[in-house]
Write a protein that binds this DNA or RNA. Structure first.
Lengths: 208, 208
DNA sequence: CGATTCGTTGATCGGGGTCAAAAACGGTGG
DNA sequence: CCACCGTTTTTGACCCCGATCAACGAATCG
């Protein structure tokens, strides 16, 4: 089934019975958990080509809401699982997809736990670029998510994210166009900042 | 195959070709990633009954090392996948297991990103107790992992973890016996501390 | 065009990191 | 059982990164 969402429209809530699996066609979806004190931890961004709500849990484990206008393809969970059980190749695809989600989540844990603000944002930009842009050179992308979304994903405040963005711009690592446009000018420098992770003046070029 | 590890013995390293999947029989295994400045982020603890290295990635995405003396059962990855391709039921089990790992990793991100030090440690103690102890009342457990392991899992310094432990002891929330023994004296208080800066009151399952 | 949301910049402050050292633990061997 | 020693944990003092509070600027939209 097709499904179209407006900006900030909710797809499902944490604790809801899992009825559907979704595939993002265009736009972007933000997965998050709400905290008792009103705070929010973003646990993932879903971009075109990504599946939402994989895993065989009977309940959704987070909230899902469209960041901007978004088109989805939805599948009934039971039918999805039935198809997977009949097609080993398809099942393997799903297995791989969840594995990628897990790897990305662990990478997020590294950013939140062990990198400083600069390192977190640098790693984030590279990660998103890897998903939104084809090549490895300079490329301009339109970040679907706001500064606040990025901050809630990285465990930072939106002010800090903004400061790091302008800092990178001053250093010539990126260039900003309008509200959401970002061009990576120097991936190697970003890579170095991400790898340094927090030690000012660390080598960061020993490997690779 | 059977495999026995001594304390701190490495099972595999990040980037190694994935040759085996493991099942923990006794002991405990610590999964972590390293930054190039020597900082370490623990991404999960594997206890008896847990699988290690699920997901169809051709390379291991983290380091794995025994925390103490540990017994494992190992399977060749290719055989594992072959068996999965032939047995939809088995494949589903793996799919579910990876999904659980993903959920736990996301919950770890929530804890690391949105709780203060007290809340993180409180949630950690409760989640460990949920896995190591049967009941819900007071119970004494022996933490397999060191303060440093806990710190690297929660994105804190080992000194801070130690200070929080001492603080909880002073408040009568826990009592400490020897180096690794912990008795939960007041789960409700710990839960309150965890919820104060924590998530939606959902049962915390931080351990991988 | 206001109006409104989002992003940037500035000033201040505190939680927790860091460095340092003492203390407690747990083996080991006498 | 006790003395010794390496390791882990605890405690203390200091300080910095990033959160917070607060304006201000700048896109988007009706």
């Amino acid at each position: 089934m097709r499904r179209t969402l407006r900006a900030r429209q909710q797809l499902f809530m944490e604790g809801d019975e899992q009825t559907h699996v979704y595939l993002v066609k265009t736009g972007a979806v933000c997965l998050y958990r709400m905290l008792r004190n009103g705070r929010r931890q973003v646990v993932g961004f879903k971009l075109p080509g990504d599946f939402i709500a994989l895993g065989a849990d009977p309940h959704y484990r987070c909230y899902a809401e469209a960041i901007g206008p978004t088109e989805l393809r939805s599948f009934q969970t039971w039918a999805f699982h039935a198809a997977a059980a009949l097609n080993a190749r398809f099942m393997l695809r799903l297995y791989e997809a969840v594995g990628r989600d897990l790897t990305r989540s662990q990478e997020q844990a590294v950013s939140v736990g062990k990198r400083d603000a600069d390192g977190s944002v640098a790693a984030f930009l590279l990660s998103v670029a890897g998903r939104l842009l084809p090549g490895e050179g300079r490329g301009t992308m339109s970040l679907p998510m706001s500064r606040a979304d990025i901050a809630d994903y990285l465990g930072l405040s939106l002010e800090t994210v903004s400061r790091v963005f302008t800092g990178f711009k001053r250093l010539g690592f990126i260039s900003l166009r309008g509200r959401r446009g970002v061009q990576l000018m120097d991936r190697a420098a970003l890579r170095a900042v991400a790898d340094a992770g927090g030690d000012n003046g660390a080598p960061a070029r020993l490997l690779n």
